[in-house]
Design a protein around this nucleic acid. Structure first.
Lengths: 209, 209
DNA sequence: CGCCCGCCGATTGCATACACTGGAGCCCGT
DNA sequence: ACGGGCTCCAGTGTATGCAATCGGCGGGCG
């Protein structure tokens, strides 16, 4: 793999998992030494992270890991709502109904005690949406949102009750898509996002780490 | 200004105006020589353009200016509809009503024979939407869409009749926002985008350059 | 005569050296 | 003692050299 991509993948993971917490200063020399690449590929990785919105320029010469607070999360969910409700509509019109019927039944059978399995199924659902929408611009916008969402999920931590409710909501969305009902798919997505956001903000209020 | 930024700005402009038509091969050495910068900042510019979606990797070693066809335009408008209808909703709820009242009156008085003035006013309207939405994630997504839209507008060329209809549509959107009517703002935006897309696709059918 | 293999050139990826700039800290003057 | 300006330096921005790789082309072999 290319050095620049390794550096990007490593930094991305470290930022998403919180190993590099918000505010961490990312000096080019320091990070290139640490990751064992030269400054050239490291700079490229930093620029990609900046365009992703995961790092920010604290001043002209210092780059830091971007912070994310409750207002950011609300903003992110505004965008997410715009994208995902419309994506659900498009999927209901264009998608392969059989794929979503199968996903609906997987959500019905999902063991939500297994957080990893749950997130894996949600990831497959997201992929199915991407395939159904079949729109590279849309998928790029969704990918960006999901990149940020990884950090938000981590901040809100694992919540078994929410995961179980989320599975039911996903099931309904998948059924609406497989049934070819765009408005139900869109509104069920809206409801799902509302519930997700509420839970996350509550979790942050209790534990504003 | 930094060399990398000059290179990016120059290439962006040349791609948007069509000076570098789709399919043009962008060799690093060739372009860096032409623009009078070294390969390092030029590479950075190319990577930014790639993440913008304006250049693509034709193969592992050759980068070309990305093409854009009717299907791409439909895809772009799918995304645009998702973003702008919701942005209009948010603006109607959060925006400064006075700003949009003023914009509505400017659209009413606009001389649509002056294409540059028309596009300038539309740009100010877009800025006002950004300010009203006050959401950096949303604005970033909108900026990306608008970057592509510059090329689309150019492909569809100047059309006085459409510009005049567009001004009326913008006026209605601005009035809906200033009147605090989110659904009217969203639906008027939907109508506007539908008309814009239809006109563009017709223009392309007549003259598929 | 056609196909496959190996060589060569072109081009990118990476590393490193040099240039420049912004800022912190210190010294001097008041 | 405090403020201003100067100096030095840390760190980024840019240029260039080197290495690796891919594709094309020609020659040899079947």
């Amino acid at each position: 793999m290319r050095a620049s991509e390794r550096a990007y993948a490593t930094l991305l993971d470290e930022i998403q998992t919180g190993a590099l917490p918000p505010g961490t200063v990312l000096g080019e020399v320091e990070q290139s030494t640490r990751l064992g690449v030269s400054r050239t590929p490291l700079r490229e990785a930093l620029r990609r992270l900046a365009s992703d919105g995961l790092v920010a320029q604290a001043s002209a010469r210092v780059t830091v890991v971007a912070g994310i607070d409750a207002d950011d999360i609300r903003s992110l969910f505004d965008l997410r709502r715009a994208l995902e409700t419309e994506a659900a509509r498009l999927a209901a019109r264009r998608g392969d109904h059989e794929v979503f019927r199968a996903l609906a039944s997987e959500f019905a059978d999902l063991d939500t005690a297994d957080a990893d399995a749950s997130y894996a199924l949600i990831a497959r659902f997201d992929s199915a949406i991407d395939d159904a929408v079949a729109n590279t611009y849309f998928s790029a916008a969704l990918r960006s949102v999901r990149t940020h969402l990884v950090r938000v999920r981590r901040m809100a931590r694992y919540n078994p009750l929410r995961l179980s409710a989320s599975a039911r909501e996903h099931r309904l969305i998948a059924e609406a898509i497989s049934g070819g009902d765009p408005e139900l798919a869109a509104h069920a997505t809206h409801v799902h996002l509302h519930n997700a956001l509420t839970t996350i903000l509550e979790a942050l209020t209790e534990d504003p780490s």
